[in-house]
Nucleic acid binder design. Sequence first.
DNA 1: GTCAGTGCAAACTTTTTGCAACTAC
DNA 2: GTAGTTGCAAAAAGTTTGCACTGAC
Lengths: 162, 162
Amino acid sequence: MDNKSVRETVKQIFTEYLKAHGHRKTPERFAILDTIYSLDGHFDIDTLYTLMEEKENFRVSRATLYNTIVLLMDANLVIKHQFGAASQYEKCYNRETHHHLICTQCGKVTEFQNEELQHDIEHTRLGRFNMSHYSLYMYGLCSKCERVNKRKLNNKLLTNKK
Amino acid sequence: MDNKSVRETVKQIFTEYLKAHGHRKTPERFAILDTIYSLDGHFDIDTLYTLMEEKENFRVSRATLYNTIVLLMDANLVIKHQFGAASQYEKCYNRETHHHLICTQCGKVTEFQNEELQHDIEHTRLGRFNMSHYSLYMYGLCSKCERVNKRKLNNKLLTNKK
DNA sequence: GTCAGTGCAAACTTTTTGCAACTAC
DNA sequence: GTAGTTGCAAAAAGTTTGCACTGAC
């Protein structure tokens, strides 16, 4: 499915959702949905706010962004992450499931896919708990920071020898 | 390892850590460490604050709690979670790895263990990324909320039929 | 004695809320 | 017309910071 038809489809899904829940179809809501689905990867409310104003020329208040995001999460069109201080969100319709590598030193977040792992997680027996989605965050050092640390350690050892 | 020896051991580890990093061994730091290791499961800063005052009769400022938690995380004695608004922390020395079921409706967090799953995750090939730990959060409906929803749905259907 | 650590309060950041104005239905 | 939405500003909640005082070394 190409990006254009995804954007059309999610618009339909959201329309259905709004109707089913007795919510109104406001221009703000669809502009927000469309902006989110034009993005790749994660974003926070502030980024979305700026982006809508600058790129899309559409002014919405932060309050509306927060309100709409709740609806989008409920409609299973957006999921929420909590990596750092500010919540991060991402579109989730027709998007490959992926996992996250988070560097504890520089904070960089990398996505990766692993179908086997995905299968293992999705088929875990959970008793009466009815899972809708999951997040796997793997913390550690990215190759860059690992290299930086090794260099620092070497320098320290050299200094001590002097 | 029983609880008492765990508490002794982490105290030693923390002492080593502080020495190695040129930090001072203050009573606050050890009181905080000990309180955390007397707890089971998750806690947030506010809970810890209240608990130390009421149960341990030890007054520390929130600022010190935040400062100390950073050190404890760096010493690999505490890990941080971000389920909701406030950060949640938990001790991690000598604690079984576990996964989290989070109810998207009532917010209840349940832990569960699954060694096979744990093994699969820990042995995933990650290229040059050096993983130290991970968090798996599975979102969905707990059995209680599922039941509540079904009841609501039934009531709604009945009302419509009238 | 010195400087890292602490407590306090103020500042800051992110998110929520109350309310008047607006608009989708 | 009316009730759901929006924008704004104020409030709330969580965390960080600046500064004077304290105490570990």
